Amino acid sequence: MTDEQRVSFDKSSGPPPPTPGYAYPPAYGFPPAYPPYGYPPYGSAAPPAPPHEKPSSNIGWAIAAIFTFWPLAIPSFIYANKVDTFWFAGNRAGAEQASRDARTWGLIGVIIGAVLFVLVIIWFVIIFAVIADTAHNLPDPSSYPSAYPS
């Protein structure tokens, strides 16, 4: 609808037909209002859906990092929470970057935790092997001199 058509609205002919793409026709007796900033003008099609789906928040990596190496779970949670904030603000690139950062921090935390777990297991195996070897090479206690003379 052009501005001239809005201005020359005739009240006697009834309300105008509903504009395509909008649920409710304008109120009777009033010309349609201008759309809010950022919305398409009356008569145009509805705005297209975003071409991509919302990226994953990768919060699973943050949760896994809590159990393996918690210091890196903190930035992973922060970036995972930023994904929704950026997406709903219309910042698709920021949401995708936050998703990648959350996955990266979480994955690094899981890898570091897994490596530390393996190193701790190896350390305990070495300690127990040394203890077992030392216990095996101890002299027989019956060969010690008695503290009480007989």
Rank of each mutant, 00 (worst) to 15 (best):
M1P: 12
T2M: 07
D3S: 05
Q5C: 12
R6F: 09
R6E: 11
V7C: 14
V7S: 15
F9G: 03
D10M: 04
K11W: 10
S12E: 03
S12C: 13
G14H: 14
P15V: 03
P16D: 13
P16E: 13
P17D: 15
P18L: 13
P18V: 15
P20L: 04
P20E: 08
P20N: 15
Y22T: 10
Y24D: 03
Y24G: 03
P25H: 12
P25K: 12
P26M: 02
A27H: 07
F30E: 14
P31A: 13
Y34Q: 11
G38H: 11
Y39F: 13
P40N: 05
P40S: 07
Y42S: 10
G43T: 02
S44Q: 07
S44A: 15
A46W: 14
A46F: 09
P47W: 15
A49K: 15
K54M: 03
P55V: 10
S56W: 02
S57M: 04
S57P: 01
N58A: 09
A62Y: 00
I63A: 08
A64S: 08
A65I: 00
F67N: 08
W70D: 06
L72A: 02
A73R: 01
A73C: 03
I78Y: 02
Y79R: 02
K82M: 13
V83S: 00
D84N: 07
T85K: 05
F86E: 10
F86W: 15
W87N: 00
F88T: 07
A89S: 11
R92L: 04
R92F: 04
G94T: 08
G94E: 05
A95Y: 00
E96L: 03
Q97S: 13
D101R: 08
D101K: 08
A102G: 00
A102K: 00
I108H: 04
I111Q: 00
I111L: 06
G113C: 01
A114V: 13
A114C: 05
V115S: 05
L116E: 13
F117N: 13
V118S: 09
V118D: 12
V118L: 15
I122H: 10
I122G: 15
V125Y: 12
F128W: 12
V130A: 07
V130C: 12
V130Y: 06
A135V: 08
A135I: 06
P139M: 12
S142I: 08
S146A: 15
P149N: 06
